[in-house]
């Protein structure tokens, strides 16, 4: 039995004219790191919301099918129980930060306070989580005095500290600097290696290629492709459907036409590109 089991999921927002997700079927194993790619409006965020239980509990609308995590169906569970297993970091940290706390440290404590974690344990968990995401020195700052990228780290940390079994991330690094982005991907990879299941909506192909186990490509609310990063991200189908692809892949495809790329498969990572372009 897969850890996440989505069957025939179709969902339409209350005021929308058409479903944003259509007949999604998806199984994800415990500890897998799955990246969800697709154009804006393809349904990536909504899929994240469905996993986090916001759809249907918060957004209402027309929901059919099954979303099951760890053997429990989202439609049967109360949101308060659901969040004990599943954590979602929002696309826009401005929307996630509570506004009820004066410091970053307190903001990160918010979730733990709500589930009644004992004080000393709370402190050590917060300190460990802040160290992991590199924001220890921001502990006493106001969440609102931070830059966009720093706020995004705070939002992510406040979810990580809850130690969810399933971590759902909606473009968690969109406002982060490039090396910071790579570091956060590495942290998430480590968490996944230690058994946390990760589903991440993301546009950054290079880091998906380096860190994710599997890629799901969404188009117009349906799964267009899924598979290993190097299969999905080099597929012609992706290029034909207007997906962004990494410069390594697009440039090698161009080089192939000019007989400057000799391998059969196209690269998705720097290492694969170096391997294929290196002078023999």
């Amino acid at each position: 039995m897969a850890f996440i089991n989505i069957q025939n999921l179709t969902y339409q927002y209350p005021t929308a004219k058409a479903p944003v997700l259509q007949n999604i079927n998806l199984q994800i194993n415990e500890g897998e790191f799955v990246a969800v790619i697709g154009a804006n409006g393809a349904g990536k965020s909504t899929l994240c919301y469905a996993l986090a239980g916001f759809v249907p509990h918060f957004f209402k609308g027309e929901f059919s099918g099954v979303v099951e995590v760890n053997g429990i169906q989202s439609s049967q569970a109360a949101l308060a129980e659901w969040v004990l297993n599943v954590g979602l970091a929002f696309q826009n940290p401005f929307n996630q930060i509570s506004g009820a706390k004066y410091t970053v440290f307190e903001e990160i404590a918010f979730g733990l306070e709500n589930i009644g974690v004992e004080r000393e344990q709370m402190k050590s968990r917060i300190e460990a989580a802040m160290k992991l995401t590199g924001i220890a020195e921001l502990a006493d700052r106001s969440p609102y005095s931070l830059s966009g990228g720093q706020q995004q780290r705070v939002a992510l940390t406040s979810i990580l500290v809850m130690q969810p079994k399933l971590l759902v991330l909606d473009e968690p690094t969109s406002q982060m600097d490039p090396i910071g982005t790579r570091e956060i991907f590495a942290v998430i990879r480590d968490l996944s290696n230690s058994g946390m299941t990760v589903v991440m909506a993301e546009h950054k192909m290079e880091w998906i290629a380096n860190f994710a186990d599997r890629v799901i490509a969404l188009k117009d609310g349906q799964i267009l492709l899924e598979g290993k990063p190097n299969e999905v991200l080099t597929s012609d189908v992706l290029a034909e459907n207007g997906f962004g692809i990494s410069r390594y892949t697009s440039t090698a495809r161009e080089a192939q036409k000019r007989n400057l790329w000799k391998k059969d498969s196209l690269p998705v990572t720097l290492e694969e590109a170096v391997e294929g372009f290196r002078r023999k």
Binding site: D177, P178, I179, G180, R182, E206, S246, R247, Y248, T251, L270, A273, V274, F277, R278, R279
Partner: peptide
């Protein structure tokens, strides 16, 4: 650039690595 947490563009890194 690494001092300010920036990587060179993808193809700049690739170009350097393949000499």
């Amino acid at each position: 650039l690494a001092q300010t947490y920036v990587d060179p563009p993808q193809l700049t890194r690739l170009g350097k690595k393949i000499g």
